[in-house]
Every structure is written in structure tokens, then in C-alpha cells.
Simulated scan of single mutants.
Amino acid sequence: MPVITMREALNQAMHEEMERDENVFLMGEEVGHYQGAYKLSQGLLQRFSERRVIDTPIAEMGFAGVGIGAAMVGLRPIIEFMSFNFSLVAIDQIINNAAKIYQMSAGQFHIPMVFRGPSGPAVQVSSQHSQSLESFYAHVPGLRVVLPSTAYDAKGLLKSAIRDDNPVVFMENETLYSSQSDVPEEEYLIPLGQGDVKREGQHVTLVAWSQPVHVCLDAAEVLSEQMGIEAEVVDPRTLRPLDERIITDSVRKTGRCVIVEVGWPKAGFGAEVAYRVQRECMDYLDAPVERVTSDDVPMPYARNLELEVQPQVKDVVAAVKKVLYLE
């Protein structure tokens, strides 16, 4: 089975879906001649022409709105934001139009489209380019919200997102674009709303999505090697719809839960997960649910401060010790 990067996996997903369905097209800043700000659309312009790979001005609200109109008449646009921080410019289109038109039209108009691009902190891009906005979009009925953590997941989830008849917010982490995993050559889909256990364990459940999944996997190795604690790492992969069962089944097995996210603590999506865990697993919990988040501050530019603000392995290990009453 080939080992490829997440960048290559996402490119393959778009290429295959554009080959499969002529109604699929890509639109965004620098997606065509420059082949994507992060080279995710490499080769697509040459294969599909400017009719289906469309370079836009720096006008997120404008091209998001054009995409919504195209979806209303049966096309399947992929709208690329150079950064999800810039999606805030288009948030009125995403929330007030894309998410609501199906209901407001009494089902006459589906909005089969994907808003995708990098989300969350990268490396020293400062506060306006480092935000994790998944809790903003997961709050909104009518949207689906997807955050892959591996190349395998990214390809299977993006293909499903493109085929979905609802607007999908597909948030990739820039620091994972070069991460590698096994990706089969044959076609596969990962259903939206289906989580994955990334590591089996019996003593504590770690719930994370996107880049923090890898922090949890590293922390699980440290816990196993140094303390004999076997942590189970659960990746919901999509926040809306949320695979609640895969999380609660794990917590019922381990009796303890730590939720790790790179977003801010106030009203972060981890708070929603914690609520559902206590509601469904109260009789199984041997300790209160713990959350590990970024600090409640805008992202600093200095690298040492940037790392300190975000969840690190040491923070996850400390939270696990807390729920196991080891400190």
C-alpha cells in the first residue's frame, strides 16, 4: 500500500471526484496557475482547465457566494480558503446562506458544496492566522464539520464530503500536510459521522481531532513506556455529525476521559464532548472529565510562547495523571 502525504491524499481526492463527476469544480485564491497556496491543487488546472479550476480575487465573501449559487443549480463546488481565518470574511454566506437555504426553501434547494482549507496554528504566523474555528461552525445546524488527522482519513473524508448533498466545512491542519500514512490505491470512502480509534487502551480515553490526535498518540507512548498506563486515543474525525457512540463506548471501558483540542477553552467543542460524556457515562466515570486546550489568549508570534500556549505532550500526561489520581 502506498505511503503518501496528506497533501497528496487531498489532491488525489479532488482529482478523482472531478474525474468522476463533471459538476465538481474548484474555486479559490491561487488554486489554478499557482497550483494552490500549499500546492494541494497541483496538476488540476492542466487536467481540467480554467472552466473547472478557477482562480479568484482576494474576495472570500464574493466567491463563497458564487459557490453557493452554483450549488443551488446543481453544481458541486469546492471552495478553498487560503486559511480558515479568512473564512470569517465569508461567514455571513456560510452561516446565513449555505447552512439555511435547504430549510428556508422547504427542501427545494440542496447546497452540495465543500468549504476547505488549512485551519488552526501553523508555525509563527501569529494571532490572525492561527485560530481554530471548528467550534464556530460546529455550532451551526445545516453544516457538516470535518477535521482529518491522517492522510488516509483526509482522502476518504474529502471524497465523502464532495458527494454529500449538504454544505461541508472541511478543516485541514497546515502542519499535517506533510504527514504520511498508508493510503490504498483502490477507491474508498469514509462516511461523515464515523469516528476512529487510533490507539487501543484500557486505563483512560483521550479524545482529540486534527493535529492534537498526534499529540495524544505521543502522550500515549510516554504514558505506556514510563508508567505502564495504556491510553485509548479516539478521533471523532467529524464534529457535526458527531460519532458520540465511539467516544462513550471507550469511556465506559476505561472509566476516565481527557479531551484535547487546540482551540480556546471558553465554549470550545471539547466542552460539548465533555457534556455528552458525563450525560451518557456518569455511572462509569471514576473521575471528572478533564480538558486540555490552548491558553485563553491570542496566539503569540514568538516560537517558544507559541508552543507554550498550545497543548503539548506534557499537558496531556499531566491531565491523565490527574484523572488517575496520581498527583
Rank of each mutant, 00 (worst) to 15 (best):
P236M: 02
R237P: 11
R237V: 08
R240M: 06
R240I: 08
P241L: 07
P241Y: 00
L242T: 10
L242K: 07
D243P: 08
E244D: 12
E244L: 07
R245T: 12
I246M: 14
I246L: 08
I247A: 13
T248H: 04
T248I: 05
T248A: 02
D249E: 15
V251C: 04
K253P: 01
T254N: 02
T254V: 05
G255C: 01
R256C: 05
C257F: 05
C257Y: 03
V258S: 03
V258P: 05
I259L: 07
I259H: 03
V260D: 06
V260G: 09
E261S: 03
V262E: 15
G263W: 03
W264N: 09
W264A: 11
P265S: 01
P265T: 04
P265V: 01
K266G: 13
K266V: 13
K266M: 15
K266W: 11
K266I: 13
A267I: 07
A271S: 09
A271D: 00
A271W: 02
E272D: 10
V273F: 05
V273L: 04
V273M: 08
A274N: 03
Y275H: 06
Y275A: 14
Y275E: 08
Y275C: 14
Y275G: 07
R276L: 05
R276T: 03
V277C: 00
Q278M: 12
E280M: 11
C281H: 04
C281P: 04
M282L: 12
D283R: 08
Y284G: 07
Y284H: 10
Y284I: 03
L285Y: 00
D286I: 07
D286V: 10
V289Q: 09
E290R: 09
S294Q: 10
S294W: 00
S294Y: 07
D295T: 14
D295K: 03
D295E: 15
P300Y: 08
P300Q: 11
P300D: 05
Y301A: 09
Y301F: 13
A302F: 03
N304E: 14
N304D: 15
L305A: 01
L305M: 04
E306V: 09
E306N: 04
L307A: 14
V309D: 15
V309Y: 14
V309S: 15
Q310Y: 15
P311W: 02
Q312K: 10
V313D: 10
K314L: 11
K314G: 15
K314S: 12
K314W: 06
D315K: 09
V316H: 05
V317L: 06
V317F: 10
A318N: 11
A319H: 14
K321V: 10
K321E: 13
K321Y: 11
K322P: 08
